[in-house]
């Protein structure tokens, strides 16, 4: 099962990763981050992550630090 490591302390809530994930596994969470907006969360209960790195390649803030496949 592929997965990503997300460091929400670096998330600036740009939400570019929401569109990048082909499976729609990244969502807005209910926690606020450094910009005062909701940070994202990785929600993959059904083990759908492809390990494609699309989210990590898109993130401008190094918040997705590792991807495993």
């Amino acid at each position: 099962m592929a997965y990503i490591v997300l460091d929400t302390k670096k998330c600036k809530s740009c939400y570019l990763c929401l569109d990048a994930c082909p499976k729609g596994l990244i969502k807005k969470s209910s926690e606020t981050g450094m910009t005062g907006n909701f940070v994202v969360e990785f929600d993959d209960k059904n083990g759908e992550c492809l390990g494609c790195k699309c989210c990590a390649l898109t993130c401008p803030d190094l918040a997705i630090t590792e991807v495993y496949k």
Partner: peptide, 30 residues
Amino acid sequence: MQQVFKLPDCIKKDAKFTFCPGCDHGVALR
């Protein structure tokens, strides 16, 4: 299980970019 993405060694481990949210400077630097 294999690591398929990591941050560049070039970038300091504790680096937090100070660019505006969504600014592509961060992607270019990576």
